[in-house]
């Protein structure tokens, strides 16, 4: 069965006064129907731009998708007209953004924002849309839906607003939802509620989910597969377990080591990734992680390693020494995989 979404060699760049930024520099990955794929990375790694590019939501200028195909249900989204694209957005692919306050319209009631989506995409009448809105708001765990639908975004808490965003994303029975840092702005207990809700709904309704986050705990809990991004590229990709227990890219290894863990006793010092992320306007021909990498060799300066299959089934890494790393970091696996004491 072909994948639900197949992204091939996608490039997005931004032209700025300081030079051209290759925010997304040739990414390739796929999402199967019903599965949850996480895109992990830090600020500027291209994870959000990559997701916005799928929906062609890159402001042009200064941005531009310069290359690549995005196959969704057999169609290349890059070749659709703007009108066809509008039908895909919000109808076939739902979106949940980080900041629910700025993604909801402050002058429309919650109810209107949900029914508008339904009327636009489904062509249903007001009464039907209203009925469906009540259903949706109940589905995302909001008590007293009829009263809530009459309220405005500012009358709701952050967690409540994010539930509304999810209801809007679900309104037209999408096959895929893209969630860009959906819980970053929320407190931990609310974050847990929202993530469990998204997991429950996507499983129950068979919706595929792309979750974009910097939180490695969230990824471990919810993702089936993981793509790790650094400086506009996917540097490692594979099943979640493999990424955490047998990472094959030095950046993934360093990132996992740098995160303090709640289930581990106090340690004297953390093990940070030294140095700074690169300036995206000044990337050279070599591997962009090289200046921070403990395993860099001469070849790393000469050319950029491609994302290639490793000796682990299903796991790919963009590192010349990917398979060597297993022995070079012998203790690493034990340290990372160890169950809590």
């Amino acid at each position: 069965m072909p994948a639900l979404l197949e992204i091939q060699n996608l490039h997005t760049e931004f032209r700025t006064g300081a030079g051209t930024i290759h925010a997304v520099d040739g990414i390739t990955y796929s999402v199967n129907a019903g599965e949850t794929v996480a895109i992990v990375g830090e600020s500027g790694s291209g994870k959000s731009v990559g997701a916005l590019s799928i929906l062609r939501l890159i402001p042009d200028p200064p941005g531009r998708i310069t290359q690549g195909t995005v196959l969704f249900g057999g169609r290349d989204l890059m070749t659709l007209t703007e009108e066809q694209m509008r039908q895909v957005r919000g109808s076939e692919i739902g979106m949940v953004f980080q900041e629910p306050m700025t993604s909801l319209n402050p002058v429309l009631t919650i109810g209107r924002q949900i029914t508008e989506t339904l009327e636009q995409h489904r062509g249903v009448d007001r009464a039907t849309a209203q009925k469906r809105a009540v259903e949706l708001v109940g589905l995302v765990g909001i008590a007293d839906p009829i009263r809530r639908l009459k309220q405005y975004p500012h009358q709701l808490s952050g967690g409540m607003r994010q539930r509304i965003m999810i209801a809007i994303a679900l309104a037209c029975d999408p096959k895929l939802i893209i969630a860009d840092e959906p819980t970053t702005a929320l407190d931990v207990t609310i974050q847990a509620q929202i993530l469990e809700l998204m997991k429950d709904l996507t499983h129950r309704l068979g919706i595929a989910l792309i979750i974009i986050t910097h939180n490695l705990g969230v990824v471990a809990r919810y993702a089936n597969r993981v793509n790790v991004m650094y400086a506009g590229r996917i540097v490692e990709s594979g099943p979640a377990r493999a990424i955490y227990h047998t990472p094959r890219h030095p950046y993934t290894i360093a990132l996992l080591r740098s995160v303090p863990r709640l289930d581990r006793p106090r340690q004297a010092r953390l093990d940070p990734v030294e140095g700074q992320p690169p300036d995206l306007t000044r990337l050279d021909a070599g591997c962009s992680f090289r200046p921070r990498c403990r395993f860099a060799i001469a070849a790393c300066a000469a050319s950029r390693p491609r994302l290639e299959a490793t000796s682990n089934p299903g796991q790919s890494a963009a590192c010349f020494r990917a398979d060597e790393l297993a022995s070079l970091t012998g203790t690493n696996e034990a340290a990372l995989a160890g169950a809590p004491a």
Binding site: T189, A192, E196, G217, V219, A220, H245, R261, A339, P340
Partner: peptide, 22 residues
């Protein structure tokens, strides 16, 4: 309990019932 740990194995074995309400 609301903080997920960066380890899929730990997370799979964890009972997880978020506290209700706000």
């Amino acid at each position: 309990a609301a903080v997920p740990v960066p380890d899929p194995d730990v997370e799979q074995g964890r009972e997880f019932r978020p506290v209700k309400g706000e």
